[in-house]
Amino acid sequence: MDADPDGPPAGGEAVRSLLVLENVSQRFGGLLALDELSLSLKQGEVVGLIGPNGAGKTTFVNVVTGVLKPTSGVIVFDGHRIDGKRPDRVARRGVARTFQIVQPFPHLRVRENVAAAALFAGGVASQAEASRVADEHLAFCGLERDADKPAGSLSLAGRKRLELAKGLASKPKLLLLDEVNAGLNAAEIDEALRLIAAIAARGITLLLIEHLMKVVVQSCSRVLVLHQGRLIADGPTQEIMRDEDVIEAYLGRRYAEAQRGAGI
């Protein structure tokens, strides 16, 4: 397997779609966290992934980014098989992620954090160049004034933005945002929404794993709904918001909570 880092290019639909999952399952002992999941993301889409706690959202991110090797199924990204590939290889191929629980390198400066992402996943040739690229991304994310602080000293909102800057410095084709808005206040969320729109405008395909309906409705053109490891709905955002099954399984209870959570 390792001798062929790219895997065979897959034909047909995979050429038009950036990410394709076919019958992907992930089993932990007796628990089926992902159950025969099949879906595809098109180049440039902004898609929301919603579902109650334990629906398998974070497992989905871990499987796509190579942290977990799926028990069965095929994942094709940009024409290459990536299921079971190591996370660093998947990252260099163009899949970046932010963590639900932020994961900075606490003793490195903020700039060094972003420069490291540019240097490795971003494929930048030199450290000086990586540092310059990092400053661009920090400015884009509104962190330029914190560039010389240790990353561990940032506030939660700052660390979330640092995650975004690291993700962008990885030069991703696909960016998976795992609850980047959780724990932020209303003003910070508005700021994050603007940032997400700006990232989408660059043509980066985005998948937002979200609890906050406001974010999904404002940002995403399409929504995937996971429930107990299965995809129970997939369609345009407005349609999904009216879907009886989705409301039954998830939104009815969650919607009000999400509104409250957004501070409205």
Binding site: T65, V67, R86, P87, D88, R89, A91, R92, A96, R97, F99, Q103, P104, F105, P106, H107, L108, E112, A115, A116, A117, L119, F120, A121, G122, Q127, K166, S170
Partner: peptide, 26 residues
């Protein structure tokens, strides 16, 4: 001052995050 040095510092602080930003940790 080298790439490997940066990689090692990242690994020491958070190995999972290091792998996610494309560092071949192994």
């Amino acid at each position: 001052r080298s790439r490997l040095g940066v990689a090692l510092r990242c690994i020491a602080q958070n190995e999972d995050a290091a792998q996610v930003i494309g560092i071949d940790t192994g």
